[in-house]
Each structure stands twice: as structure tokens, then as C-alpha cells.
Computed example of a mutant assay.
Amino acid sequence: MSRRTREAAPATAGSARCTVTVCRGCCCGTPKIPGLDHGAQLAQLRGALDDTAQVRVTGCLDACEHANVIVVQPSAAGRAAGGRPVWLGLVNDTDAADDIAAWVEAGGPGLADPPGILDLYAFTPSRRIRQALAD
């Protein structure tokens, strides 16, 4: 595992709030997923979570078989309550994005149970992939 130094995030952002990481790498966010307006999906998440969570875009998370991938990381309070990052795959419709936003607004991992439908999207990536997100 690599160790990189990072600048501390402001107290009002980052770990104080949930972080929603949206993959837009080689498969996610591309025409390989037809019929989905990827830009609109990202705008939908950002608009719904503007005051609630940090929404960030990343390159390939190396879970291409689950494209489009979104990872919901708990807030500091959620992590203290036992919450861990939740990986969601095949997030290819607007209803799923709405469900993710509603869950994060309710507190996200560790603080609120996700809507049951999100169980269909959840998956566990390999340890190597999980560690790459933490770097």
C-alpha cells in the first residue's frame, strides 16, 4: 500500500460529510453504457447533495464489470458509528441516483440504512481496489 501525504481538508468538508465518489474512467461515464446521460447523472447527484456531501469524480476504479460505479464513504460520525464505504455498481438509471442522494441526506453509511433497492447495486471489490480509493 502506498503512503502519500495529503493536505488536510477544511473542517467543514471531507470527513465531516459523506463523500460520494463517481467513477468516470474507461467504462463508467462513457458510451459503453448506452442510454444514460452521464453528465446529467453527475449533475443530479451534485445538485441533490450540494449542501450534504462532497461529490467527486475519479478516474477508473478498476471495477469495470460493475460500470457505472459510485462509492459512498461515511462521514466522520458515520465512521465512528461503524459505517464503511459502500460500493454500488450498475448505477445506470436516475432512480438509483435519487436513492443514493436520499440515503446520503439521511446520514449515509453508519448513520442511516440505505433504501432496500440499493442492496441490488452493492458489491464488494477486491482489497487492492478498495485500498486504491483510500490512497
Rank of each mutant, 00 (worst) to 15 (best):
M1R: 14
S2K: 11
S2I: 13
S2V: 15
R3A: 15
R4S: 13
T5G: 13
A9R: 14
A11C: 09
A11M: 11
A11R: 14
A11G: 11
T12C: 09
A13W: 14
A13V: 15
G14Y: 10
A16D: 14
R17A: 08
R17L: 13
R17E: 07
T19G: 04
V22E: 01
V22L: 11
V22P: 00
R24K: 13
R24C: 09
R24Y: 06
G25W: 08
C27H: 12
C27S: 14
C28R: 05
T30G: 09
P31M: 03
P31G: 11
K32F: 10
I33C: 11
I33V: 15
I33H: 06
P34L: 06
P34Q: 08
L36P: 05
L36N: 04
L36Y: 07
D37M: 09
D37H: 08
A40K: 15
Q41Y: 10
Q41S: 13
Q41H: 14
L42V: 14
L42H: 08
A43L: 10
A43G: 12
Q44T: 08
L45T: 01
R46S: 08
R46P: 03
G47T: 12
A48F: 03
A48C: 07
L49P: 02
L49T: 06
L49F: 08
D50F: 10
D51C: 06
T52V: 13
A53Y: 02
A53Q: 04
Q54D: 15
Q54Y: 01
V55K: 07
R56N: 12
R56T: 15
V57T: 15
V57N: 02
V57E: 14
C60Q: 09
L61F: 07
D62M: 07
A63M: 08
E65I: 09
A67G: 12
N68D: 11
V69K: 02
V69D: 01
I70D: 02
V71Y: 03
V72W: 00
Q73M: 07
Q73R: 13
S75V: 06
S75E: 05
A77K: 05
G78E: 01
R79I: 00
A80C: 06
A81V: 02
G82W: 00
G82Y: 00
R84S: 10
R84K: 15
R84Y: 02
R84W: 02
R84G: 03
R84E: 11
P85F: 07
P85T: 08
V86Y: 02
L88I: 07
G89Q: 02
N92E: 12
D95Q: 10
D98G: 09
D98R: 13
I100P: 01
A101G: 04
A102H: 01
A102I: 00
W103F: 05
W103C: 01
V104R: 00
E105K: 09
A106Q: 06
G107S: 05
P109C: 04
P109A: 03
P109D: 01
L111G: 01
L111V: 03
D113A: 12
I117N: 07
I117R: 12
D119K: 03
D119P: 00
L120K: 06
L120M: 07
Y121W: 10
A122G: 02
F123P: 02
F123R: 04
F123N: 04
T124L: 07
T124S: 11
R127H: 12
R128C: 02
R128H: 11
I129M: 12
I129R: 12
R130F: 05
R130Y: 05
Q131W: 11
L133S: 10
L133I: 12
L133R: 11
A134M: 09
D135R: 14
D135F: 06
